[in-house]
Design a protein around this nucleic acid. Structure first.
Lengths: 239, 239
DNA sequence: TTTTGAAGAGAAATCGATTTTGTTGTGGAA
DNA sequence: TTCCACAACAAAATCGATTTCTCTTCAAAA
C-alpha cells in the first residue's frame, strides 16, 4: 500500500493537497510549468492521478490548464490582483457581516483566541531581510478564518477562503518586502477587526475588512507597478 | 480522428461541456449516479477522459465526487437552495451594480436587445401543463447575463453565472409548476431591472436584483417544503 | 545573414488493462 | 427471526503503454 496524506481517501486527493500546499508555499514560481511526469515521479503515483489533481487545481484558479500545452502555475497579473481584491471585498465583507449577525459565545472565543495567537507570533523570521515567518502567515490566515467562522453560508466561507489563498500567493510572490509599510499599522487594523466582531458592529466590520483588503492590495499593486523588471523576471522563469 | 464539440480543443473539454449541458437540461435526476463507464461508452471516449470531465464538474459544484463511491449529480437540498440564493444576492448584486457604474452605449444596447427577446419569447411550451419553454429559459439566462455584461470584474461575472446555473438547475428539478405564481409579475420585474440599468440607478438595481432572486428562491423553497414526497422521490432515483 | 521549412526530440493527451474498494446476497449462529 | 461473517460481484481508482501534438534545431534557399 502506498502512503497517503491523512484524511485523503484517494491518491488524487493526497496529490492535490500536496501540490496545492507547495504552490501556496511559493515552491513554484508564477507561470512556471507543472510537469505531470515530474510530479508523478516525485510522489510515486501514476500520471492519471496527477492529471486529476492538477485539473482540480485548475478549476480552482490556482493553475492554468491549456489543452496540448499542459499545466502551469498562474502568473502574476496586476489586473487580476485588483480583480481578486474587488471580489474579496464583496464576498469577505458579506461573510464577515453575516458571521457577526449570527455570532455566539463560541464565535467570540474563537476570534479572541486567534487574535491572541496572531499578536504573540513574531512577524519576521529574519529581522534583517524582513522575511515574513511561516508561523505568522498561518496565524494570520487562521485569524481571518475565525472572523468568518460564524457565517451561516458555507459557500460564502468557501469562496472567501479560496480567494484569500490566491491573494496570499500573490503577496508571497511580490516579495516579502511588500509587507513593509511605513504608513500602516497592521496590528491596529487586526485589533479593530476583532473589536468590531466582539462589539457585533457588523456594518463597521464590513467596512473595516474592505479597507484592510484594499490597503494590502494597493501596496501589492504598487510594488508590481514600480518593479516591472522583477515581476517580469518572476513570470519569465520556466523551470 | 474523433469528433469534438466546436471550440473544445481536447476530448475532456468536449465531454465536460456535453455532460454539463445534459445535467443543466435536467437529463439526470438529482442525486443520480453518473457512471464513468456508461458515459465513456456513450461518447466513445476512454474512462480517464470522462473522469477528468467529471472531476471538473465536481469542482464546480454541479457534481458530487466521493472517493470509492464515484460521481453523482448533486441532490436537491433545501439548505443549499437557500445558501445559493444568499450568495447570489451578494455576488449578482455587486456585479450588477458594478456593471451599471461602468455602463456605456454598447451595454445599454445589449440589455435592451436581450429584454426585447425575452418579452417576445413565449414562456410556456405547453399551456396546459405550464411547462417552461427551452427558448424562454435561454432568453431569461441571456437577459440576466446582459445585465452583468458591463461589469469590470471577470471573476464576479464568472461566479454569478455559475451560481445562476445551479439555481436554474434546482428550479427545473422542483418542477416547472414552481414558476406558476399568482402574486408575482415576472415581466414587470424584468422591466424594472432593465429600467434601473438604463437609468443607471445602481443602488436601486442592486436592491431589485436581490428581491428578484429572493422571490424565486422562496417560491422554490416553499415548493420543496410543501412537496417533501416528490422531492424525496426525485432524490431517491438512482438510475 | 536572415528566413523558411522539415525532421526529430520531448511532453501531453488518450487508451485498455489491472488493482483496489465497496456493495450485495447468502448462510450459519445466536 | 435477527444479526453477523463471508463470498461473489460490480464499480471505481490506478497504472503503463501508445498516440498525438508542440517546440526546437538544423539546413537550405533567398
Amino acid at each position: 500500500m502506498r502512503e497517503q496524506a491523512a484524511g485523503a481517501r484517494s491518491l488524487s486527493r493526497a496529490v492535490f493537497a500536496d501540490v496545492r500546499a507547495e504552490i501556496l508555499a511559493g515552491v513554484y514560481p508564477p507561470g512556471s510549468k507543472l510537469s505531470p511526469r515530474a510530479i508523478a515521479t516525485k510522489s510515486d503515483v501514476s500520471l492519471s492521478v496527477v492529471r486529476e489533481a492538477l485539473t482540480r487545481l485548475a478549476e480552482q484558479g490556482l493553475v492554468n490548464a491549456a489543452p496540448q500545452l499542459g499545466f502551469s502555475v498562474v502568473s502574476l497579473d496586476l489586473e487580476d490582483v485588483r480583480d481578486i481584491s474587488k471580489v474579496r471585498i464583496v464576498i469577505e465583507g458579506a461573510a464577515f457581516k453575516d458571521a457577526i449577525e449570527h455570532a455566539d459565545i463560541e464565535y467570540e472565543t474563537r476570534v479572541l483566541a486567534a487574535h491572541h495567537r496572531l499578536v504573540r507570533t513574531p512577524i519576521w523570521s529574519d529581522e534583517e531581510t524582513h522575511t515574513v515567518s511561516e508561523e505568522w502567515s498561518t496565524a494570520h490566515a487562521q485569524f481571518h478564518s475565525a472572523l468568518l467562522s460564524a457565517s451561516t453560508s458555507p459557500r460564502l466561507r468557501e469562496l472567501a477562503e479560496g480567494l484569500r489563498d490566491t491573494a496570499e500567493l500573490y503577496r508571497r510572490w511580490s516579495g516579502t518586502l511588500a509587507v513593509d509599510q511605513p504608513e500602516r499599522d497592521i496590528p491596529a487594523e487586526h485589533e479593530a477587526l476583532m473589536q468590531a466582531a466582539l462589539d457585533r458592529r457588523s456594518d463597521l466590520a464590513e467596512k473595516l475588512i474592505g479597507d484592510h483588503i484594499n490597503k494590502t492590495t494597493e501596496l501589492l499593486a504598487g510594488y508590481v507597478e514600480t518593479h516591472p523588471v522583477e515581476v517580469a523576471a518572476l513570470n519569465g522563469v520556466q523551470p
